[in-house]
Nucleic acid binder design. Structure first.
Length: 179
DNA sequence: CCTATTTGACCCAC
DNA sequence: GTGGGTCAAATAGG
């Protein structure tokens, strides 16, 4: 069955400049759409790792990927370490954070732009969402609460912005028009 | 029916 | 050989 033995050359050595990671409690939407293409149990880690890639890889050749892994928490609220790789070459389309849509009707949609964790510095860190709506899959728990408590974990790779906003704003009609 | 996810196997670096 | 990352067939969902 798998005897063909035709596999592509894999590239596992990513330079740190094209990889960065954040810790978030809601890895649902970061402004892009991802398709899961694999999951692996990490040796030292306690929880397995989920591998996602941009859905535009098939359509536009976007090479952006991300891996989501649960991190062990003290017991307050589960967190997820999201590691991004490469930058998006695709365009952001009508992808809006559901939490943003709830809190702010329309105007904030453009400003928030989703993928930046530092969009709104909410002082109230995490509410005790231990009982938050958690869809327990098997290994990875996804929180559907809108607690945007993100912090950068990267050390040196965070020198520059993960994505340059210019690439999204370059369009004349705007990458996302609020009208 | 088409698209997305699941899941085990394959491939490469260490 | 082991661990980490990816592929792709099978499956599930709309």
């Amino acid at each position: 069955m798998y005897g063909n033995g035709k596999r592509k050359s894999l590239k596992t050595s990513w330079s740190k400049q094209e990889t960065w990671s954040i810790a978030t409690t809601s890895p649902y939407d970061d402004g892009h759409q991802w398709r899961k293409y694999g999951h692996k149990t990490i040796k030292n880690a306690k929880y397995p790792k989920n591998y996602y890639r941009c859905v535009f890889r098939d359509k536009q050749g976007c090479l952006a990927k991300k891996t989501v892994q649960r991190v062990d928490t003290f017991g307050d609220s589960p967190r997820f370490s999201v590691e991004y790789r490469a930058t998006h070459t695709c365009k952001t389309i009508d992808v809006v954070l559901p939490s943003v849509m709830e809190s702010a009707p329309k105007e904030a949609s453009v400003h928030a732009s989703g993928f930046r964790c530092t969009l709104e510095p909410q002082e109230n860190h995490l509410s005790p969402l231990a009982h938050a709506a958690i869809e327990a899959q098997d290994e990875g728990l996804w929180i559907s609460d809108q607690a945007q408590d993100c912090e950068l974990l990267g050390s040196d790779m965070m020198a520059t912005e993960p994505w340059d906003l210019d690439m999204f704003l370059e369009d004349d009609d705007g990458w996302y028009n609020v009208q």
